[in-house]
């Protein structure tokens, strides 16, 4: 089950919030050894969590975090433009039709749902882009993701890479369109209607609006 939640609405989901930020600490600090900030409550967060990003979250059956990623528009401040210009030939990627996706994280508690979580997250990212008319998504990711993205059926075009082997970090560009969506659905066995339902549940049509304008 996927939920799209803005940072300013996360307090309504205390369990998801706590487990997401703690899982991020586990993944980025402990597992990958990135130089990230973990506070005294065990949460990993940075300045981009402060500017009201949209989180795409895979929720486990017990209501805890199974995986997530973070979305920001590239017309504003982004991680790629602030910190990874060396990987894009110095080009600031800024377009109303490109959003940035970072902090792709899978929970150590996802267990045998980890594969499903990874596919569902990518599908949810693609669905978000299709529904909001985007052309591309740009993201930063570590070496092990390259092969996960390929397996999911939606591989980015890599703009640049620094570091070698498993320490490599890349910036990549995904194409958002109906074919990408169908491809992820075919590989993951998740029906396109399910992805549409995730979106509609998080951005619901308000019945009082419909009643008023009828």
């Amino acid at each position: 089950m996927i939920k799209y939640i803005y940072a300013d609405a996360m307090d309504a989901f205390p369990k998801l919030k706590e487990t997401m930020f703690k899982d991020r600490a586990w993944q980025f600090k402990e597992r990958l050894g990135w130089d990230v900030n973990v506070d005294e409550t065990g949460y990993e967060s940075d300045e981009y969590d402060e500017i009201n990003p949209l989180y795409v979250i895979f929720e486990l059956p017990d209501g805890s975090h199974g995986g997530s990623m973070r979305i920001l528009p590239t017309t504003g401040q982004t991680m790629v433009n602030d910190h990874f210009l060396d990987l894009t030939d110095g080009v600031q990627i800024s377009s109303p039709l490109i959003w940035e996706c970072t902090r792709f994280c899978l929970s150590p508690n996802a267990g045998k749902l980890a594969g499903k979580a990874a596919s569902a997250l990518m599908l949810a990212g693609c669905e978000l882009g299709v529904r909001f008319g985007l052309e591309n998504s740009v993201g930063v990711f570590d070496a092990r993701m390259v092969h996960i993205y390929r397996r999911i059926g939606w591989a980015p075009e890599i703009l640049g890479t620094s570091g070698k082997g498993k320490d490599a970090v890349s910036v990549g560009l995904w194409e958002i369109n109906e074919e990408s969506k169908q491809q992820i659905c075919a590989k993951s066995g998740i029906a396109p209607e399910e992805a549409e339902a995730w979106f509609d549940a998080s951005f619901p049509v308000d019945d009082s609006f419909d009643a008023m304008v009828a």
Partner: peptide, 27 residues
């Protein structure tokens, strides 16, 4: 103000009575 995605009006929160009265006036 709060969010960056394109806002389809019918997907906004109209549950507040003042908002609904405003919508009636607008229509």
């Amino acid at each position: 103000f709060q969010h960056f995605h394109p806002q389809d009006w019918k997907r906004l929160d109209w549950s507040n009575r003042g908002s609904r009265e405003f919508l009636g006036e607008a229509i």
